[in-house]
Design a binder for these strands. Structure first.
Lengths: 139, 139
DNA sequence: TTTTTCTATCTGATAGTAGCATATAGGGCA
DNA sequence: TGCCCTATATGCTACTATCAGATAGAAAAA
């Protein structure tokens, strides 16, 4: 159990410093992935700060989401990331329309994104191996 | 809902022929992945027929499973695949030890595996895009 | 002015999965 | 007799995804 897996309910911190917290957790070992919402949110926020409704649209730009991702999931993951300290937010009531909660990525969030990138490289090569194995077997 | 997602409970078939059934199902659209157990089982069985306990060990050879995959999950997925017609089995009581249920891949199963390969290619390139996007953003 | 629509955030309910533990049972061996 | 290994299978719980709906401000249409 760690904040990466389900930080919404148990906010018991994520280690003693940056870049930790992905070691003893089974979510790392077993490859649990939470549908890529979190890394996509983090990368979007690295590009520029944004609010949920806008992130919802920007997420469609990632090829993991051919259709629009679920509204509830996006807001819940943002909250979860905030509880873990990976993003932070403030309310913006200035301009037109309802108030927006603007999210920004934190240094911890940047570390987490970097860990995701590493994970993606691993997965990518595991898939390459799989495909190669298949081609050797079916040929 | 389709057999790819959860064919254990609802055995309502998978379309009218081979290679179908991955179209209207949300599991395809949203990228649900079921931990790669099913494709790994299918590829293992393509290489040669085998029983659950042996497959359990062979699954560790895939880089998706750094540790041993869950026993229960493997047997349940095998049952699920059999209900969908993607694998078939017979009991083997001949040699030493308890009886083994030997599984083999069916033509439908081979089609399913091929669909998985396509999915993996998609995912792989989606991850490459993601990584590239990250590198452009952080540079 | 009233209603509808769009933006925006958030919650509730349900179905399905992963992971862990446990149950069952045959066979070898000490 | 008791213990370990092989082999299959089920029960339970925590968690996730998905769908649906609630809330609410503001603009546009009627």
């Amino acid at each position: 159990m760690c904040d990466t897996c389900h930080g919404l309910e148990h906010g018991h911190g994520h280690g003693t410093g940056h870049g930790e917290g992905r070691g003893d957790c089974h979510c790392k070992l077993s490859g649990k992935v939470e549908r890529f919402i979190q890394p996509c949110l983090l990368l979007s926020l690295l590009q520029h700060s944004s609010h949920g409704y806008e992130l919802l649209e920007r997420l469609s730009g990632f090829r993991f989401y051919p259709g629009a991702p679920d509204t509830g999931a996006v807001y819940r993951h943002l909250r979860r990331l905030e509880n873990g300290g990976y993003v932070e937010s403030h309310w913006e009531t200035g301009d037109a329309g309802p108030a927006k909660r603007i999210y920004s990525i934190t240094p911890d969030g940047q570390d987490m994104l970097e860990a995701w990138i590493e994970e993606f490289r691993d997965r990518k090569s595991a898939m390459e191996d799989f495909i190669e194995k298949y081609e050797r077997s079916s040929r």
